[in-house]
């Protein structure tokens, strides 16, 4: 494969990815004041984005409900439940992840 082709492809990918991450700064950057609508949107987005990301993480399990879907569902509920109970981030992540890894091998 031509090295030149790979390098151009990588450069294009890098520029586009950075551009997308920086785009809102270019739009609302500098000394210009951000519109109130955008400020408020930015504040309420995290709760929504977390929900979207959780769906993103479990979506692949739809193809294999028994093999990975059920283990993932049980592990997610374990994390949510244990966190609501003890509010300890590390314990919940460790217990949930271990549970998922074990269940993957059982199912």
């Amino acid at each position: 494969m031509r090295t030149e082709y790979i390098l151009v492809a990588v450069a294009v990918s890098a520029v586009i990815t950075f551009g997308l991450r920086a785009f809102p700064f270019a739009l609302f950057g500098g000394s210009r004041k951000m519109p109130e609508t955008i400020v408020k949107l930015g504040k309420v987005l995290p709760a929504t984005i977390m929900a979207v990301l959780i769906v993103y993480c479990v979506k692949d399990s739809l193809d294999n409900v028994i093999g990975t879907g059920i283990p993932k569902l049980i592990a997610v509920l374990t994390v949510a439940g244990s966190y609501k109970w003890k509010h300890n981030t590390f314990v919940s992540i460790a217990v949930g992840t271990l549970m998922y890894m074990v269940l993957l091998r059982i199912f």
């Binding site: 709760a47 929900a51 979207v52 592990a75 981030t89 949930g96 890894m101």
Partner: peptide, 29 residues
């Protein structure tokens, strides 16, 4: 790699508990 999903779930629960309204989270789902 499930540990990342676990973190998303934990932040979700945190935001759920702090929020005065659950509309934001439900809209996302």
């Amino acid at each position: 790699d499930f540990c990342m999903t676990a973190l998303f779930v934990i932040i979700f629960v945190d935001q759920w508990e702090q929020a005065s309204s659950h509309v934001l989270a439900i809209v996302g789902v």
